[in-house]
Design a binder for these strands. Structure first.
Lengths: 196, 196
DNA sequence: AGAATTACCTAACAATCGCTTGACCAGTTG
DNA sequence: CAACTGGTCAAGCGATTGTTAGGTAATTCT
């Protein structure tokens, strides 16, 4: 694996991610991908086994990236609530700053053969477990409600965060950091201003 | 338009919705759709103009259905908070009880030509405005926080609710009604158990 | 009864798809 | 200089795609 080869493979990976986000995996043709990269369709197969392999590697890259970036801010010295706040912030910022990379992982998983899909889903569960663990800790410490399971609260959290990739517009909307802070606030405190 | 024709068209519409949910619009072939319906590919074109028309009508049906079902519970005599609770409940229940119909509208919109997509997006904005209106009312009455805009709270609400179509499993998970109640609770009161 | 319409069919079209084969050539190595 | 390797290419394969043209049996209308 020479420098030139790995650099090209990287270019292909990122352009594929962008194309998959724009058109969806099935509607994105290998010919259009090659055109965008200024190469011929056949050349793609020197760097990747096939089209599905391309989507799989995009998803793997997405998961390892977001996982690494969240691990960086997972500081056990912080109070649970601040720790979660930092993790959610990193999650949202990473997703929105690299939408091309992460959107296919969130929306195109169904296009993968079960064996590859399951591999990505396993990585995703491990990643989400990081958040569930903190929520459980928060429940033990009494800062997070215990009438709902940590699993459902985790699902609610990712519901809240992940759908943003569909409508986020970097030109009109707030910065990812601002948006992340708002989601954290909504998640912890809710939309109500009085006890129900 | 005879009875037989409209009945067949209805069968085609619902089967198409199911297929679009399973495979995505681009990966769903008209031949497989016809096979499922026990007819030939060409016969589809007696009832629908083309494949895109099929997706468009699925989305229209989705929006009119959910809109109608939410309108039914929009009772101005209820307190704002209870009114929103009822609307959210209806939204979630309708989505989860008719996943085949509503999932394509939520996930396959990008496959539509801009002119049709914009038509659906307009209907969706009108629908979401129903919720924004109630949130604004709630803010005026002091039962909903005012440090975040009603628009962002609406986005947060639909984020929370809509992503559920990706993971909901009717065999393992709670009933749609139970899930709706939990989401309402998370949305209004948040996940925290103490003021932040 | 004859004419028209309805709802589906067979057959095939042109276009596009993912992917393979085998050759080409620049750059590195012996 | 010769041999080799890494990366790209042209050409085309077979399969599948959405869609159309034209026909047919059953039903409905006049």
């Amino acid at each position: 694996m020479t420098d030139r080869s790995s650099e090209t493979a990287e270019r292909v990976l990122l352009e594929a991610a962008a194309l998959f986000r724009e058109k969806g995996f099935a509607s994105a043709s290998t010919r259009e991908l090659a055109d965008r990269l200024g190469m011929r369709g056949a050349s793609l197969y020197y760097h990747f086994k096939n089209k599905e392999d391309l989507l799989y590697r995009v998803c793997v890259r997405s998961m390892t990236t977001v996982r690494t970036r969240v691990d960086e801010v997972l500081d056990p010295r912080l109070p649970v609530r601040e720790r979660l706040r930092a993790m959610v912030g990193r999650h949202v910022i990473t997703l929105l700053e690299q939408r091309d990379l992460h959107t296919p992982m969130l929306t195109q998983l169904a296009e993968l053969t079960p064996v590859w899909r399951d591999d990505i889903l396993r990585r995703r569960r491990e990643y989400e477990q990081l958040f569930t663990d903190q929520i459980v800790l928060g429940q033990r410490e009494g800062v997070i409600r215990t009438d709902l399971t940590a699993e459902l609260l985790t699902l609610s959290l990712f519901n809240l965060l992940n759908w943003t990739v569909f409508w986020y517009n970097p030109e009109k909307d707030q910065t990812p950091q601002e948006l992340a802070d708002m989601f954290v606030s909504v998640f912890f405190d809710g939309a109500g201003s009085a006890p129900s």
